[in-house]
Design a protein around this nucleic acid. Structure first.
Lengths: 230, 230
DNA sequence: GACAAGCAGATTGTCGACAATCCAGCAAGG
DNA sequence: CCTTGCTGGATTGTCGACAATCTGCTTGTC
């Protein structure tokens, strides 16, 4: 008997398919914050009935990237500067925890995976594919969570990631320019391979702060413009 | 114009109603871990069609207390000792963060609410209502999260709470005895009113450890028995 | 002109029925 | 015996239609 283990087969329900499509559309900014999702129109476009679409929407509501008002509609969440600050400050705490927990569990496979994901980010950067760049950067960042051996933590982070990805996409689309080609993750990867856990934790916190400031500034700008318009 | 603020009117959709019913049934242990939810039977019992029931289930799946396998069914999540450990270790970190953030925001209303919730726990304890005791204790515990002024954190904690409540209920039902009448929250409340934030954080961590040890021990016992049976 | 009542259109919420899938049990073949 | 393939029943996934609700406009009244 060969020792080949098969991965579980893909769930091919329309619902799961729809969830993926919608999530991607939201996280890449194709569906803008605050925008209403018309069930009938989307169902027709996807050639699907409303039942699985609505179920998919309920999932994304609970995932935190959609919000639903009974008899009024389902909307992409609004992104406020406060939301971004909140998400980031929580992310810092979780990062420290994830590093602490994954630290003693780092092994050969961890380092391989670290390099693989780092390489993916660099590739996306070379390709000037900003969307993919955000995705891969978050996946790189997520490795410590996957390795922390804490299902609840991982779940929490993935939920947080959805929002972060959405915020980043919004930011990227807005300033409409490619991120600096220099590799900002070099230090992060090096520290995760090293022996000083405290240093890794500190870097994670500070590295986050950099992007964060810019993102919040951008969001505050958005809000100022919006309030002027209204 | 009077300064009376009305609370939003109740969402009267069947779906919301069903979510409440199911959540309560799960968190109080009326639906046991691992148990399958038969859509047709539940729909008939609730006198509701399957559509809103299924949508409600999707919400609870994303909430983390149900799990769904396509074409097989939707089940109450299984509670493993590891899950409990994971939830608790994360809870510790979040508690520290919540205390830190809510600390400078404590005001008169905070202290009032703190007393009110503390009183509710004591009342439930006097009534020997274990289910309500769990609920109220978690609500007391949740105050720092509500006051931390961080929507993402609050959201995260509420999700975590669902699991914790489920674990506690399981535990309570199993040992089938009332919790000690002495008030274990006295110190917690006092420290939250005090001036030493570090002390409050330490206490939160240690107080949690107490219940935690017992709960994990119980869960491990469960699993040992289960593996023997299988 | 201001305002309330009411109507029409659009959209969401719910329903009952049908299609796709799974599972246990049994028969056929080695 | 063990394995393979089939079949019937039960359950989940999906569909199209109907009911409930909201929104904006029109109308009538003052």
């Amino acid at each position: 008997m060969g020792k080949l283990d098969f991965s579980p087969i893909a769930d091919t329900t329309r619902r799961a398919e729809i969830v993926g499509l919608l999530r991607r559309a939201i996280l890449t900014g194709q569906l803008e914050p605050g925008q209403k999702l018309n069930e009938l129109r989307i169902a027709e476009q996807m050639r699907v009935s409303r039942a699985p679409l609505r179920e998919a929407m309920r999932e994304l509501v609970q995932e935190g990237i959609l919000t639903s008002i009974p008899y009024a509609g389902t909307f992409v969440i609004d992104v406020t500067a406060k939301d971004i600050e909140d998400a980031y400050s929580l992310n810092k705490v979780l990062d420290e925890f994830a590093i602490e927990r994954s630290w003693p569990l780092r092994d050969e496979r961890f380092f391989e995976e670290l390099d693989r994901r780092h390489e993916a980010v660099k590739q996306a950067t070379r390709d000037r594919d900003t969307t993919r760049q955000i995705e891969t950067a978050l996946q790189l960042h997520g490795l410590i969570y996957e390795w922390a051996d804490n299902a609840v933590l991982l779940d929490t982070w993935q939920r947080l990631t959805s929002r972060l990805q959405m915020y980043f996409a919004l930011h990227q689309r807005a300033r409409n320019e490619v991120v600096p080609a220099e590799d900002v993750h070099e230090t992060y990867v090096r520290l995760l391979k090293g022996a000083d856990m405290g240093a890794a934790q500190r870097h994670a916190r500070e590295h986050i702060d950099l992007d964060f400031e810019e993102l919040v500034a951008y969001a505050r700008g958005l809000e100022k413009r919006a309030s002027k318009g209204a």
